[in-house]
C-alpha cells in the first residue's frame, strides 16, 4: 500500500520497473519507470517469491525463466533475488552473461508499450549497485549463489 493515499501498489522487482506514479517503495516517484526501489517483498532467491512479478532472476532457473526477470507468472516461479543488483548477470538462456537489471528494464518497457503507457527514465540507467542497495535500501542486502558471482554475496 502507498502510505500516502492507501492505494494498492503494483508489485515490481526493482528500481525503474514501477508501472505507475508513486509506485516505488517510497511512493514519491513522478512517473512509471522512475521509481527508486522494489515494492515486491525482498527475497534472496529462486522460488522464494510470494507473488507474480516478484522474481528478480538471473542466478538459478532455466534460460527461458532467466529471460523474463521481474515478469514471472506466479508465486514461487521467480528466478532470483529482489531487488536486482546492477552487477548481476544471467547464467543461462539468451541473456547469459548480460545484465539482469537491463533485461528486466527492457521487459518492463515492452510491457508498458503494449499497455499504451508512457514511462520515464530509471533513476539509474544500469540499475542499483550493491553498494547503493546496502546504503539506501538494506545494509544486509544479498543475492545468492556459492560462486559469489551474483555481485551481491551469498544468501541464507
Amino acid at each position: 500500500m502507498n502510505s500516502q493515499n492507501n492505494m494498492p501498489l503494483e508489485l515490481h522487482a526493482c528500481m525503474g520497473l514501477n508501472a505507475c506514479k508513486a509506485h516505488d517503495r517510497l511512493g514519491t516517484n513522478e512517473c512509471a519507470g522512475m521509481g527508486t526501489c522494489a515494492t515486491a517483498a525482498e527475497h534472496s532467491c529462486h522460488t522464494l517469491n510470494n507473488c507474480r512479478g516478484q522474481g528478480g532472476c538471473g542466478l538459478y532457473g532455466t534460460g527461458e525463466e532467466q529471460d523474463r526477470p521481474g515478469d514471472n507468472p506466479c508465486a514461487w516461479r521467480g528466478s532470483c533475488a529482489v531487488p536486482i543488483n546492477a552487477e548481476r548477470f544471467s547464467t543461462d538462456g539468451p541473456n547469459q552473461g548480460k545484465s539482469v537489471w537491463q533485461r528486466a528494464r527492457k521487459v518492463f518497457e515492452e510491457r508498458m508499450k503494449q499497455s499504451g503507457r508512457t514511462f520515464g527514465p530509471s533513476p539509474s540507467p544500469v540499475g542499483p549497485t550493491t553498494a547503493w542497495l546496502k546504503k539506501n535500501y538494506n545494509p544486509d542486502y544479498n543475492a545468492c549463489g556459492a560462486s559469489g558471482m551474483s555481485g551481491g554475496g551469498s544468501c541464507i
Binding site: L59, G61, E65, D92, Q96, S147, M149
Partner: peptide
C-alpha cells in the same frame, strides 16, 4: 517445464 537448467550461479566460476 523449468525442471532442469544446465547452468546456474553455483556451476559457474571466475
Amino acid at each position: 517445464k523449468g525442471y532442469y537448467a544446465a547452468s546456474n550461479i553455483d556451476t559457474i566460476y571466475p
